[in-house]
Design a protein around this nucleic acid. Structure first.
Lengths: 219, 219, 219, 219
DNA sequence: AATGAATGAGAGTTCATTCAT
DNA sequence: TATGAATGAACTCTCATTCAT
C-alpha cells in the first residue's frame, strides 16, 4: 500500500476503534453487535472486517486505546518533581478527565477486558498494573517525604484512588452535566484529609483509636 | 405454581436465583446463557422456564435479591443511635460483607441492572436511591454533631463511600483470599482521616490551601 | 373401573373433547397448545394425558365428534320421503345449525383434519365422503323426479352445497349475531333458483346460452 | 437492502414470498416452519431473515401478494360495461383462476390472515372488503338492469359467490387435475339459474312458496 | 383422578463471520 | 475499499410428553 492509502486506512481504523469504544461502553461487549458498531461508523456490517479480524480484536484495540495514553500520562506525572499533593491531584485529574476526553475506551478497559482471550488480557493487565505500581510508588514517596502518615498501606491506597475514580467515571460517562473539576477537587480533598473534623490540636493516634474501639467482630 | 406446599417450588426458585446471580456476576447478563445458569443449578436448560418467565425476569429477581437485605441492613444502621464513626464503619462492613455472604447478586445489581426493562429498573433504582439517601442523612448528622467538617458535600460523600465499596467489592468477589476485615478498617480510616500526615498543630485551612494552590485550569 | 367411575371418566373425556374443539376452532391445531385446552377445561396441562394419549388423538376425537351426528342426521334426511326441495333445505339447516349447536367441532373437521395421521384421516374422510355421496344421491333423485334440470352435475352440486354451507359456517362461528334462519332460507333459494330474473315465459336453453356465449378462452 | 441494483434482492424476495405461500397453503401458518420455507426456496433457514424480519412479516407479504391483483382484476371487471351475466362469469373466472396462476397466496389470505397482528390484518381486510363491495355493486346493477330478481339480498349474494369460489379454490389448489373451465361454467350456471327444473310457464312466486312451505321451525 | 416437576426436541431469531464482486 | 448475500452456530423460548406422587 502506498503511503497515502495507508494513511487513510489507519485513519478509518481509528474511527472504527472509536465507534467500537462508544458502543461497547454503552451496551457492553456481549450486548453490542458488529452491526451496531458499523452503523455508528457509517459503514456496512461486513466492512468492519476490513479493519478487524474479529469482534474480539476490536475489543482488544479499544482496551489498548483506552489504557495507553492513560498510562503514558501517569508516567509523566510520576517522573515530574512536584510534591505529593500535586501528583495526587494530577493523577485524579488525568484519570477522571479521561472519561470525558478520550471517549469511552477507558470504561471499556475497566469493564470488558475480562472477555478478552487470556494472552491479550494479560498483556493489557500488565499495563494497568504498571499504572497501579507507579501510583503506589508515588504514595511511597509521599510517606517518605512526610506528606503522608507512615501507617498507610500504599497498595490499598493506590487501589482506593483507582476505585474511587472509576466509580465517578461511570457517573461522568453517563451524565455529561457533572462538573468534572468539582469532582476532582472533592476526591483529592477526601483522599488527603478524609471527612473528619479536626480539633485544633490533635494526635493522629486518636483517629486510629476511634476506629479501633468499635469492637468489630470479624464474622 | 402451587399454592400450598410451595416449599419445594420456592426453594428451587431460590436456587435458580442464586445460580443466575453467580453466572451473571461472572460473565455479565449478555455474556451468560440460560444454559449456563441451568447447568450451574443442575437442571436442563428448558426447565429454567419453570421458574422464570424469561431470562430478563431472572435478572430482575437477582437484582432484587441483591439489593433487598442490603437496604434493610442500612435501615437498621441509620435507625441506631451510634456515633457517626460507628455508623460509617457499620455501613462499610455491611456493604463489603454483602459481597462475601450474599453471593454475587449485589454486583449484578450494580453492573447489569441497566439491561432491565425500564419499569423494573426504576422500581429497583428507587431502592438503591433510598440507600444513598440514608447514607447522606448519616453524613448530615455527622456534620451537625461536629464529627465531620462542615465543608463536606454530603451527596458527594455518600456516593464516594458507595463507589469505594463497590470497587473493593469487585476485588472481593473475584479473590476469595482478600482479608475482608482489613479492607473494612482501611476504608473506614481513609474516609475519616484521609492519607495525609497531621502535624502536631494544624489548621484546617491549610489542607484546603494545598489543593487550592495547584492552579488547576478547568478545561 | 366400576360403572360409576367409568361414567365420570367418560363425562370428563367428553368435556375434554369439547374444550379441544373450541380451542382448535379458534387457533387451529398447531396454534393451540395442550395448556390452552387444559385451561379451558379447568384442569392442569399434564392431566389432559389422562384422557388423551396425545394431542393428535385429541384432534382425532374432535373431528370424529364433529362429523358423527352431522352424518347421522344426513342419513335421516336421505332416508325420509320428503320431496327434493325439502331434503335440500333440511340438509342446509342441519349443516348450518351444526356450527351453532355442536360447538366448533365441525369446523375443526373441515379445517384441521389434514393434520391427522393418514390412517385416521382416511377413516374420517370416508365418513365425510359418505355424507357427500348421500347428498349426491339426493340430487340424483331430484333429477329423476323432475325437480331438477337433468343437465346438472350431481357431484358438482353436492360439493357446491357443502362449500357454500362451510363458507357461511365460518361466518356463523365467528359472528354470533348472524340470523341463522335467514341464511338458511337464502342459501336454499339460491341453490334452487339462482339469482336470475325469470321472464314470464322462458326456455331453460336460453340460460345456458347466455353463459355459453361469453367466449371464455381457457388459459 | 440495496437502493440501486436491487434487482437481485427484489427477485429473491419475491421467490421467498412464493415459497412461503406454498408452504403456508399446505401446512398452515403455525404448522409451517421457517426451515420448510427456506428449504423450498433452496437456501438455509437463517438466510430467510435477510428477506423477512420475521415469520409473521412473511405471512403479511404472502397475504398482500395473494389479494393484490385479485382485487385489481375485480376493479377492471367492475369498471367494464359488460352485462351482468358477463361480469359474474368474469368474476368467477378471475377468482378461480387465481388459485391456479398465482400459486397459493390467495388461499393463505383466506385461511391464515387472522394470525397477523391486528394492524396489518385490518389493512388487508379493507382490501378484501373493497372486493366484496364491488361485487355487491355489480349485483345491485344487475337488479336495476332487470337481469336479477329484485328480491335478492346483494350482500348475501356477494358473500355466496366468494364462499363458493373459495370452496372450489381449495379443491383446485389441492388437485391439479380439476378442469378449471368446467368448474367456472357450472358455478356461473348455478348462481344464475339454480338447480331447479323450469316448467315452460312458471311464476316466480311458486319458487318462493316451495321453500316457504317447509314450515321450518326457527330454533 | 390429577398434579408438580422436569425434560428434550424443535421453534424463531440473532449474529459473527466469510467471500465473491 | 466496501458491500450484498449467505451461512451456521448459538441463543431464548415453547411445548408435547412423561412420571412419581
Amino acid at each position: 500500500m502506498p503511503e497515502t492509502e495507508n494513511n487513510k486506512y489507519q485513519h478509518q481504523r481509528q474511527q472504527a476503534i472509536r465507534s467500537a469504544a462508544a458502543v461497547f461502553a454503552e451496551k457492553g461487549f456481549h450486548g453490542s453487535s458488529t452491526k451496531d458498531i458499523a452503523e455508528r461508523m457509517g459503514i456496512k456490517q461486513g466492512s468492519l472486517y476490513y479493519y478487524f479480524k474479529s469482534k474480539e480484536e476490536a475489543l482488544g484495540e479499544v482496551c489498548l486505546f483506552g489504557i495507553t495514553d492513560y498510562v503514558d500520562r501517569m508516567n509523566g506525572i510520576a517522573a515530574s518533581d512536584q510534591p505529593f499533593e500535586a501528583k495526587l491531584m494530577a493523577t485524579i485529574t488525568s484519570h477522571l478527565s479521561s472519561y470525558r476526553e478520550k471517549n469511552e475506551a477507558l470504561k471499556v478497559y475497566n469493564d470488558e477486558r475480562l472477555y478478552l482471550p487470556e494472552a491479550k488480557r494479560i498483556t493489557l493487565k500488565s499495563l494497568g498494573s504498571g499504572y497501579r505500581q507507579l501510583l503506589e510508588m508515588i504514595f511511597e514517596e509521599g510517606v517518605q517525604s512526610g506528606a503522608l502518615r507512615d501507617s498507610i498501606d500504599c497498595h490499598f491506597a493506590a487501589q482506593a484512588v483507582i476505585g474511587i475514580c472509576n466509580a465517578w467515571g461511570d457517573v461522568i460517562v453517563r451524565d455529561p452535566d457533572v462538573d468534572l473539576f468539582d469532582i476532582i477537587q472533592k476526591c483529592t480533598d477526601l483522599l488527603l484529609n478524609g471527612f473528619r473534623e479536626r480539633r485544633k490540636i490533635q494526635r493522629t493516634d486518636d483517629d486510629i483509636d476511634v476506629a479501633g474501639n468499635l469492637n468489630y467482630q470479624k464474622n
